[in-house]
Amino acid sequence: MTTHPQPVPGTLPVPATLASLPTSVWVTAQKDARNQRRDRYTPASATHPAKMLPAIAAHAITTYTTPGQLVLDPMCGIGTTLVEAIHHGRDAAGIELEGRWTATAKRNLTLAHTQGATGRATIHTGDARHAHTLLGPEHHGQVQLLLTSPPYGASVHGRVNATRDTHRSGINKFDTTYGTNPANLAHAPTDALLDAFTAILTSCLPLLAPGAHVAVTARPWRHHGELVDLPAAVIAAGQNAGLTPVERCVALLAGVRDGHLTARPSFFQLKNVRTARAAGVPMHLIVHEDVLILRAPHSLPSRATPPSAVTVEATTS
Rank of each mutant, 00 (worst) to 15 (best):
H288R: 03
H284A: 06
H288W: 11
R277F: 03
G280K: 00
L300N: 09
D290Y: 07
L285C: 04
M283F: 09
R274N: 07
L261W: 11
A263C: 04
R257C: 08
A276W: 02
L294E: 00
L300S: 06
A279P: 05
A276Y: 04
I293F: 08
L292N: 05
A263L: 05
I293R: 00
P265M: 05
R264Y: 10
S299E: 14
F267W: 13
V291N: 09
S266Y: 04
S302K: 12
V256E: 05
D258S: 11
D290W: 09
L270P: 00
K271P: 01
R264S: 12
G280D: 01
L261R: 14
T305G: 09
K271N: 12
D258R: 13
A304S: 14
R274T: 06
R274A: 04
H260V: 01
D290C: 07
D258E: 15
F267K: 00
L261K: 11
F268W: 15
L300Q: 05
P282H: 02
V291R: 09
I293N: 00
P265E: 08
P265G: 01
A279I: 13
T262N: 08
H288Q: 07
G259P: 05
S299L: 13
T262A: 09
P306E: 09
A278F: 08
A304C: 06
K271T: 13
R264T: 10
L292W: 08
A263W: 02
H298P: 00
I293W: 05
S299D: 14
T305V: 08
D290E: 12
S299M: 08
P265S: 02
L285F: 06
R274Q: 12
